[in-house]
């Protein structure tokens, strides 16, 4: 593309209006309609939370919610579970991903596939299995939210593993470790002083994703009869709609803000990667890169 001048978009050779030549009208209609579909529920929730089903504007839903002790206690419970999940996830995933890239890059694909398994098995089924197989375990595990944290580590794997894995991939682990070793540092110190600081964005991604997952998870918590943040939300929803909706709006904003940050950070990195690679179709990759916290 040496001599196409003045038109950087075209000279990239990838995508671009030239390939598709989609009409402006088509684009406006599609994006407008879909955009509306995504914005209207947010607007509706905001309105509903301020007015309830009656007329008149008030913050009563919010003030009631914030003065509700159970709001805070369930939030605290979910945060505790989140901290546990994040800690345990990092403790397992950092050594694992570093090891895979350093010692066994050949099984990278296998590990990736394993990390996606929880997507394949519905969380309702996993809960059923947890009851079936761990029902007889001592109360200290099954009777406390510890079991939730233990399961959330697994259920959040499809998001957390890939995030950390791509963070580790961005480093040249082998070179870093060898450089460290050549300077006489033991592996533990290399991990702590060299690798971890370089893994900041990956670790941050795991923290955000795992935490958001824990705050939003409903199926396992409710079926194992723990009143977490999300379970409590449903409980209020049965009786006080406007409060529940105010609650939802807060919850949505709480997940959307950190997620947008993570998305922007990671899409920037992924963009760089794909431009460099220029691979043909990355469908398999992209499908495995799905990051969804829906259930």
């Amino acid at each position: 593309m040496a001599s196409v001048i003045g038109v950087p978009a075209k000279s990239s050779g990838v995508g671009g209006s030239n390939v598709l030549r989609v009409g402006k009208v088509f684009r406006a209609v599609v994006l407008g309609a879909v955009g509306l579909f995504f914005i209207v529920p947010v607007i509706s929730s905001a309105r509903f939370s301020f007015t309830g089903s009656s007329a008149g504007f008030s913050f009563s839903a919010y003030s009631k919610l914030l003065s509700d002790p159970q709001f805070w206690s369930t939030l605290f419970l979910s945060v505790k579970i989140g901290v546990g999940t994040v800690t345990l996830s990092l403790a397992i995933l950092i050594p694992t991903t570093v090891w895979v890239h350093w010692k066994a890059p050949k099984i990278r694909r296998v590990m990736e596939a394993l990390s996606l398994l929880p997507l394949v098995i519905p969380s309702v089924v996993i809960t059923l299995g947890v009851i079936t197989s761990f029902g007889s375990l001592p109360n200290i595990i099954m009777g406390t939210p510890v079991i939730l944290a233990l399961e959330y580590v697994v259920l959040a794997l499809p998001y957390t593993y890939r995030t950390l894995d791509s963070g580790v991939q961005a480093l040249d682990i082998k070179t870093l470790v060898e450089a460290g070793q050549s300077l006489g540092a033991p592996f533990r110190k290399i991990l702590w002083w060299v690798l971890l600081p370089n893994l900041k964005s990956g670790v941050l991604g795991v923290v955000v994703l795992a935490f958001a997952f824990c705050l939003g998870e409903f199926a396992v918590a409710s079926l194992l009869s723990f009143t977490t943040f999300a379970v409590y939300l449903v409980q209020i929803g049965q009786t006080q709609a406007s409060e529940a909706i105010a609650f939802s709006l807060i919850a949505l904003l709480f997940t959307w803000i950190p997620l947008s940050i993570v998305t922007v950070v990671f899409s920037r990195r992924a963009g760089k990667k794909s431009r460099r690679g220029g691979g043909v179709l990355m469908s398999s990759q992209s499908v495995t890169e799905l990051v969804e916290l829906s259930e």
Partner: peptide
């Protein structure tokens, strides 16, 4: 990444 309970309630609204 949005889903679950909050989504359900915003659609109720």
């Amino acid at each position: 990444n949005t889903g679950g309970v909050p989504l359900a309630f915003s659609f109720v609204a």
